[in-house]
Design a binder for these strands. Structure first.
Lengths: 244, 244
DNA sequence: CGCACCCTTGATCCTGCTCAAAGAAAGTGG
DNA sequence: CCACTTTCTTTGAGCAGGATCAAGGGTGCG
């Protein structure tokens, strides 16, 4: 298990003048698509753009949940800790994903930048007011929250009942599909997180992650271009391992 | 959706003339509290009351998600299966809990009655229409979905990083707290589910569940009145085991 | 170049799983 | 009501998947 070793929070970059929805990768895909100009303006008025460095803590479990974030570039990890330092990463956020949606009083998890990250930050209070004026916006967020719930249930199945090999195969396929949905090439995969992050996401140790990746390499199901670049050379075989 | 197929479907009790919110345990607590008469009438018009027997299947993963249910009495288990039969129970529903909320096209999990169960069934389409007329109802459901998401994240931490002893202790305390919140006595606990269900909920085997309960009994942290009745005789010690 | 950090690989250990058997409940039919 | 069956639970013995401990190798950075 790995101990948290986040750097202290760094100064945040000032808000940009207006939120351009077309420039905001996620929102054009999932949230902003088809929104009338008036509502976009409403949201523009309350957004703050942030840039975050790797290892920087974005929110901490228990902090008052004053903001909702949307990732516009980079990768964020969400995690929960036990008192003795054991860590469970509950998800990786890619561009387009929301952060802090599910929180009501305090954030239910901590979030830390894996890579350089750009965020849109919304004050929760103002966002709620916007939703009250445009209820169908809340509907969109509701759907997104439900998708998160479905993903969480899949992850429970993985954590509780899959073997190390199945976990790794599922993880590689899941990341590949998410990147593809965002326009990446089939089979080529970037793993910006450390082996320790992967271990804490899958409920394994660093050593088991490393060994299992080596095993897949040995069976020629994956090829490793560099530490973080992986190519899935036999997707069918990976899917057969997953067999869910 | 499906009708239960483990046992033949029983005649359904006709929808009650008007849905009496005070008679509907959950809704008085979480959902219906403070709703104006008009909205209650709206919901009354579309609800169907059902009675389900133990082991009867309520919904199956993948079925079209045509209905939303609310448990009014009894216990329901939600689960996902792997092809070879491995099972992960993702949650137990107590009176007041919703079923099928997070589903959009198809149900993301199967649900089966653990005990005799009473349900309120809402056609999703009609429910959505009601939400469009009364947007603050959707807001309430959004909050409920978010609570589910928070619970799912806690469960991921449990599945990925806790020991068998910690899992069992967490489970007992969690159930005890939920029953207390619904008015049960402190420390006295009913486990209507089988050891197999508990195992599949905690990512363990039946034998490990049984052994761990015996261990807690040996340390006098719990007392077993019958197979399903357990008394938590040392809650502090249990909480110390959990230590999260 | 040297240090720090991360990753890989090997050896050994241990928690929880598997296999097995017997006891306790609960249903079933006479 | 009781004999019989089925299902669930408990407990024991042995095993194994993944964890832990340890050492060495890459890689990036000052």
């Amino acid at each position: 298990m790995t101990l948290p070793r986040a750097k202290p929070n760094q100064p945040r970059i000032a808000p940009c003048a207006a939120m351009d929805c077309r420039a905001c990768e996620f929102r054009s895909l999932t949230f902003c698509a088809g929104l009338p100009e008036r509502e976009i303006a409403e949201l523009s008025a309350i957004v703050t753009r942030l840039r975050i460095e790797p290892q920087q803590v974005i929110i901490q479990e228990g902090d008052p949940a004053d903001h909702v974030f949307n990732v516009t570039s980079g990768v964020v990890k969400l995690y929960k800790l036990l008192l003795d330092g054991r860590r469970q990463i509950t998800g990786f956020l890619l561009p387009g994903d929301f952060l802090g949606l599910s929180s009501r009083v305090g954030y239910a998890y901590s979030a830390e930048a894996v890579t350089d990250v750009s965020l849109c930050r919304f004050p929760r209070q103002r966002l709620e007011e916007a939703f009250d004026r445009f209820p169908h916006l809340r509907r969109r967020l509701f759907d997104i929250a439900n998708d998160e719930l479905v993903a969480a249930q899949d992850q429970m199945l993985l954590l509780g009942r899959k073997t190390a090999l199945e976990k790794i195969a599922s993880f590689l396929l899941q990341l590949s599909e998410r990147e593809q949905r965002r326009g990446a090439g089939l089979g080529s995969l970037d793993l910006p997180m450390t082996r320790g992050d992967i271990a804490d996401y899958l409920g394994l140790t660093i050593e088991t992650v490393s060994r299992t990746l080596s095993q897949l390499k040995g069976q020629a199901l994956i090829k490793q271009k560099s530490l973080s670049e992986i190519e899935l050379t036999n997707i069918d075989a990976l899917q057969e391992i997953t067999e869910s």
